[in-house]
Design a protein around this nucleic acid. Structure first.
Lengths: 199, 199
DNA sequence: TCAAAGAATGAATCGGTGTTCACTACTTGC
DNA sequence: GCAAGTAGTGAACACCGATTCATTCTTTGA
């Protein structure tokens, strides 16, 4: 034997992998998924196109990871905001506001993560996270039902509808045109009413 | 001169054009936009691939027309249902129910028209119809504000959110999985509450 | 220093579709 | 029937980006 992958090499490999994912993330956030060719990602990460394939089996796998990590960050942020103590109505408002403000801060990324056309393999990842979003809001509805703060309803349907309302009201319009922050309180009120939370 | 397009020829041309659009519509309704190649459409319409280009300048133009006609039919149906006399709450319920039942009847088509990834040129058409949907619901909200049946709100934001809620709650889930008709009354209640319509 | 093995490269390949166009078939008016 | 002009055809082309792989560059342990 004459070669063995040392810790130093492994570190460099890891760093390169992270640089590739990071570059892909940045490109998506700036230009969207469309127009994110492997060559472009490789260039941004300062590696050769072929090198990308030493870390990911194909394009779908790379962008699935990008979507996974990016969306998880959003879900975590909203979950944290909604987990703080308070009435269900208050927690709901905080969740919507957190989602909205973050989307307004990175509109292109938000559009890419939620609505932009993507490859089937990436779409599968998105589907999984749609479920995560729905679960998050369904949990809030469950809490409201248990405490009697919310009127009878199917938490899954209500949660899916609420997620759709947020996406359409915020993300899709942002795609074409500029941010309109006044939408946030309107949307919060809409969601709060929709689930039957008094205030 | 030795050739002039007679009425008979024009009729045949028109018929062929309609056959192409109709074939494209059927293919979208069955398999979605993805996998609707020009060759497939031509085959279904029983013309050569090149013949499609005697009626449409490119693929985008063909499918833009498919989307336009299909969506207009849906908008018209919902508009008619919501135009019947009654309280705003009643008209709203009828609108949601009409939308929902039609979507459940043709889930693949509904998904294609509302959520499926499409070409930019077709996306532009969709964007225009998103506005049509929003206008329709915004009009209902306007009526409710005027009559005092609905509480103060931005009709545009509420309408966009309501449209998003319908799309997400119905169309997107339908894409993967089977129809669940019990969703309709849940969704109706959700929308009614969200706009602040008492019942 | 050297051989062995892995890592990195990027030009070439490949596959899939939209589009074209040289050609055939048909229609028309004389 | 015939010439002029149009409609219809479908194989060939063009394009584009993902993927491959023969080659070069690095690292390793002796």
């Amino acid at each position: 034997m004459a070669y063995r992958r040392t810790a130093a090499v492994q570190e460099r490999l890891d760093a390169t992998r992270i640089r590739i994912v990071s570059a892909a993330h940045d490109l998506v956030a700036e230009h969207g998924y469309a127009g994110c060719s492997i060559a472009l990602v490789a260039g941004a990460a300062e590696v050769a196109t072929g090198s990308v394939y030493r870390h990911f089996p194909d394009k779908g796998a790379l962008f699935a990871e990008v979507f996974r990590t990016s969306t998880q960050r959003e879900v975590d942020a909203v979950a944290a905001a909604s987990a703080l103590p308070g009435t269900v109505a208050q927690r709901l408002s905080r969740a919507v506001e957190t989602f909205a403000h973050r989307a307004l801060a990175s509109p292109r990324l938000a559009y890419a993560l939620i609505a932009e056309p993507v490859d089937p393999r990436v779409e599968a990842e998105r589907l999984a996270y749609r479920a995560a979003w729905t679960d998050l809001f369904a949990g809030l509805v469950d809490d409201g039902l248990a405490s009697g703060e919310l009127p009878g309803q199917d938490p899954r349907v209500s949660a899916a509808a609420a997620v759709g309302a947020m996406a359409q009201a915020l993300v899709v319009p942002l795609h074409h045109g500029s941010a309109e922050p006044h939408v946030v309180p309107e949307l919060t009120a809409f969601i709060t009413r929709s689930l039957g939370a008094s205030s």
